[in-house]
């Protein structure tokens, strides 16, 4: 770690004032940032600790939930309203990392996790456009079993590691942002970027902008939602592929559906194409398969990860089938 100064933000205004400095970074639970600092991949001069800011989960008048960004992942997963009304979110959170990490990690920090691409992590010995734009990408022709099948670019084939974000993308979550001169909201699906030729820029956040809360819209659909994660060991591993989905069936036909995929792209992947393909269709395996096929038509395999296309297709069909079964 390079030397830095540490400050604990007393409130949002204090945080964004401090966080606006060059080479300042907001510090949540530290579960990713501290690790990356130890690897000297992250080199902040100033750490602004925002874990003392809001960690309240409050009911909104419109039936939605407002979740303070400093809420721990565990607190969010175990909250009654989340478990009963947004089960996919609870399931996604407890599918990620380990209990100790979920106790430390904040909701805001989870959103800003960086990729676990092994070449990204090898500061001393590997080329990575995300660390150093223009440096090249060793993953492209290297070990890329874990890497992206959707939305990748010649610059970067890494994937976003979060489970929670996949559920939030599916649930149409909104991200509340604060900067010294602005307050705004962004749909979670528009928070993260695809890599393009600037994989080092991972979000649409302005410099110094702070995530203060996540808003979950009221949605009866979400009650029948779930999350399935496929990984290389039974627990404590990043997703090869994950699927968050919610489904409402009326008279045998898909009335409403939302699907997002994890482990497949540089951002949590909302499956808009599949959703559009399913609306009004019979809630059958054939429709699910056709929708999955449509979504994955754009998928491009790398040397080691071609299986992910078939795995994503099968997992989507299985998850939708499970939800349809419950819906009947």
């Amino acid at each position: 770690m390079i030397p830095f100064t540490y400050a604990r933000a007393t409130d949002v205004a204090d945080a964004v004032r401090r966080g606006g400095a060059e080479a300042a970074r907001y510090l949540g639970g530290g579960t990713n940032l501290v690790d990356l600092m130890r690897e000297t991949i992250e080199r902040p001069d100033i750490l602004v600790d925002v874990t003392g800011l809001s960690h309240a989960i409050t009911e909104r008048d419109d039936g939605g939930l407002l979740i303070g960004a400093a809420t721990s992942n565990t607190a969010l997963a175990e909250h009654r309203a989340v478990r009963t009304r947004y089960p996919a979110l609870s399931r996604a959170i407890v599918a990620g990392a380990s209990a100790q990490i979920r106790n430390m990690a904040t909701v805001g920090g989870n959103l800003l996790q960086r990729t676990r691409c092994a070449y990204f992590y090898d500061e001393a010995g590997a080329h990575c456009n995300k660390r150093h734009p223009g440096d090249g990408c060793d993953a492209m022709d290297g070990f890329n079993r874990m890497h992206a099948i959707l939305g990748a670019s010649p610059s970067c084939v890494s994937v976003h590691p979060s489970d929670m974000c996949v559920a939030l993308a599916m649930l149409d979550a909104q991200v509340h942002l604060e900067a010294p001169a602005s307050t705004r909201r962004l749909p979670l699906t528009e928070l993260h970027r695809l890599p393009g030729d600037r994989p080092d820029v991972e979000t649409h956040l302005a410099p110094g902008e702070l995530i203060t809360a996540i808003e979950l819209p009221a949605a009866s659909l979400a009650v029948r939602s779930t999350y399935r994660k496929v990984r290389d060991r039974a627990s404590y591993a990043f997703a090869l592929v994950s699927v968050a989905a919610a489904l409402e069936v009326e008279e045998g036909r898909v009335k409403e559906v939302r699907i997002a995929l994890g482990g497949v792209a540089h951002k949590p992947w909302r499956a808009w194409t599949a959703e559009a393909a399913l609306l009004g269709q019979p809630a059958t395996e054939a429709s699910f398969a056709a929708a999955a096929q449509a979504e994955l038509a754009a998928a491009r395999p790398l040397k080691d990860n071609g299986f992910k296309i078939e795995l994503a297709r099968r997992t989507m069909v299985a998850v939708l089938g499970e939800l349809a079964g419950e819906a009947v």
Binding site: G30, T31, V34, T51, I101, N103, M104
Partner: peptide, 14 residues
């Protein structure tokens, strides 16, 4: 509450 002390900066636990 259980946490990982390796990822915790000590100053955060004032």
């Amino acid at each position: 509450e259980r946490i990982l002390s390796c990822l915790a900066l000590a100053v955060q636990y004032d």
